[in-house]
Simulated assay, not measured.
Amino acid sequence: MTSVAFVEPVTLIQGGLRLEPLALAHEAGLAAAAADGQLWRIRVTSVPGPGETRAYIEQALAMREAGSRFAFAVVDEATGRVLGSTSYHDIMPAVRRVEIGYTWYAKSVQRTHVNTTAKLLMMGHAFDTLQCHVVGWRTDNYNFASQRAIERLGAKKDGVIRGHALRRDATIRDTVMYSMRAGEWPEARAQLLYLLTRHNGT
């Protein structure tokens, strides 16, 4: 089994949100999403800046071809608007593990149901369809909003890898690692569904 075959092309839909395989056709929509809040100015993210969106997508497609990453465009079903992007990455078929990352959304949809719904879709596909044993996350040690969001999913903090990666400003970051095992997924799913129900007021 190769990682290319492990994560096959799929479109995931729920709650008015559609996660579809990232393609060059998403370039304009993705650039507009990044411009909503000028997200590339945040030093602890890797959002493409002006004029960088095509290269960003091409890199994601190359990583998909290599089997190490599968990127999605996050799309509003009703309007077709691209809201951001998220990916499976560090795909390890031999141990049935994927990580979820490269995640960012237009500022106008942050702190809404979008991230919770997207994570529910991706975690559900990873655990229920791909039969993953573990799903992981990693984030910058200074990206406290991301750490809180990951912890709200029910993931457990594994530790910190010091001096692990370069930021966009060429400083060296520590990386905070999280994970969830398959046995923890049912409770996490119930909590995510509860949060979405509260958001929808039902």
Rank of each mutant, 00 (worst) to 15 (best):
G84C: 05
G49V: 06
Y102E: 00
G51S: 11
A118K: 01
A32C: 00
A62P: 06
M1K: 14
R168I: 06
Y105F: 11
R81G: 01
A145F: 04
N141W: 03
F6Y: 11
R167F: 01
S68H: 10
G136H: 05
T116F: 02
M123Y: 07
T117K: 02
Q14G: 13
L120S: 07
T45Y: 02
T112N: 00
T197A: 13
R181N: 12
P21N: 09
T116W: 01
G67W: 07
R43A: 07
R81C: 04
I161D: 02
N200D: 13
P50K: 07
A62D: 14
L24N: 11
V75N: 00
H199I: 07
I13P: 02
R69S: 13
T139E: 04
N141Y: 06
R168V: 08
A165T: 06
S68F: 08
R64A: 11
L12H: 14
G163K: 15
F6C: 13
D158E: 13
D169K: 02
M177S: 09
V95W: 10
V7F: 14
Q147E: 13
R81M: 08
V4P: 07
Q59F: 11
Y194S: 14
R198D: 13
V44N: 02
A78P: 01
A5S: 14
A155G: 08
H164F: 09
G80L: 09
M122Y: 01
A190Q: 15
A188I: 15
V98N: 05
E65A: 13
T197N: 12
L195S: 01
D174T: 08
A106G: 05
R148C: 06
A25I: 09
P186C: 11
R198F: 07
A118S: 03
E58Q: 12
A94S: 08
A188S: 07
A73S: 11
N115M: 02
A170T: 03
R198T: 06
H133V: 01
L195G: 00
A170W: 09
D90P: 04
S108P: 04
T202W: 09
A182L: 05
T202I: 11
R96F: 12
A188E: 00
V109G: 04
W185R: 09
R64N: 15
A55K: 01
D128Q: 14
T103R: 05
T197H: 15
L19M: 09
Y102H: 07
A33M: 01
Y105A: 05
E151G: 12
G136S: 07
G37Q: 08
A5C: 10
T45M: 01
L83T: 00
E187K: 12
S146Y: 04
E151A: 14
F144G: 07
R138M: 02
L83I: 02
L121R: 01
G159H: 09
P93Q: 13
N200S: 13
V160G: 12
A118D: 00
T79K: 13
S108H: 03
V7L: 15
V135K: 04
Q14C: 12
R198N: 12
K119F: 06
A94Q: 13
I100A: 03
G84V: 02
E187L: 12
T197G: 03
A23L: 07
A118T: 05
Y88F: 15
L192Y: 04
A66E: 14
T2H: 11
D76I: 06
T175H: 05
D158S: 08
R97Y: 05
E20R: 15
V47K: 00
T53A: 06
